[in-house]
C-alpha cells in the first residue's frame, strides 16, 4: 500500500516569526494615530491670517496661535531682556499688526517674504514702534518666539514676473 504523500497542512505558526511583523504593524498603527493626534489636537498648529487674529483678538487673549502674513520694510533690531529681538509690522489683505519677535529670526527673513509666526497678543504700547513706518500703534502687539518662512512657488528670475508675493503696503 502506498503511503499518503499529500503534504499535511501547515501548523498554525505562533512563533516569534509571526509575532515580529505583527508587533511592527501595531507599532506603525500607533504611530499613525500619534501623528493624527498631534496634528489635529494641537490648536497652535492652525494658521490664522492677519485679519482673523485682529477680528478674534478678544477670543485669542492668553492663547498661543500661529499667524501668516508679510513683514513690511522698516525692521528694527533690538534686545528684549538679554535676548535679541526684531520689531516689525506684519500684514495681509491690508490688515496690519505690530510684532515683537524674540530670538533669532529665520535666515531668509526679510520684508516682502511671508512668514508664519507663533505667539500671543499683548496689550501694551511700546515706544520702539514709533520708529516703524507702517506701525499700527493701536495699543496691541504680537509677541512671538517661533518663525518659519512660507516660501512661494515661483522660480523665475525676471523681477517683472514676480506678481504673487503678498506685499500689502508694498506695490507688486
Amino acid at each position: 500500500m502506498t503511503e499518503d504523500l499529500t503534504p499535511s497542512p501547515a501548523r498554525p505558526e505562533r512563533s516569534k516569526h509571526r509575532r515580529g511583523p505583527i508587533a511592527i504593524i501595531v507599532l506603525l498603527l500607533t504611530a499613525v494615530a500619534a501623528v493624527l493626534f498631534v496634528t489635529l489636537g494641537d490648536a497652535t498648529l492652525v494658521f490664522y491670517e492677519v485679519d482673523e487674529v485682529v477680528e478674534q483678538r478678544e477670543e485669542l487673549i492668553d492663547k498661543r496661535f500661529r499667524v501668516v502674513g508679510t513683514p513690511l520694510p522698516g525692521i528694527v533690531e533690538t534686545t528684549v531682556g538679554r535676548e535679541s529681538a526684531v520689531l516689525f509690522t506684519f500684514c495681509a489683505q491690508g490688515v496690519y499688526v505690530d510684532v515683537v519677535h524674540v530670538g533669532d529670526p529665520a535666515e531668509l527673513f526679510q520684508p516682502g517674504v511671508p512668514v508664519v509666526l507663533q505667539g500671543e497678543w499683548v496689550s501694551e504700547s511700546l515706544p520702539e514702534f514709533q520708529s516703524l513706518p507702517n506701525a499700527t500703534r493701536d495699543g496691541w502687539y504680537l509677541s512671538t518666539d517661533h518663525m518659519v518662512v512660507k516660501h512661494d512657488n515661483d522660480y523665475r528670475t525676471d523681477p517683472d514676473r514676480i506678481t504673487d508675493i503678498e506685499s500689502c503696503g508694498l506695490k507688486e
Binding site: 520694510p73 531668509l108 526679510q110 520684508p111 516682502g112 517674504v113 516660501h151 515661483d154 522660480y155 523665475r156 528670475t157 523681477p159 517683472d160 514676480i162 508675493i165 506685499s167 508694498l170 506695490k171 507688486e172
Partner: peptide, 17 residues
C-alpha cells in the same frame, strides 16, 4: 544651474532660496 536669487520688485533686496 544658478542659485535661486531674485530681486524683490519693491524693496530691491535679494530674495529666494
Amino acid at each position: 544651474t544658478d542659485p535661486d536669487v531674485r530681486l524683490h520688485p519693491t524693496t530691491g533686496e535679494e530674495i529666494g532660496q
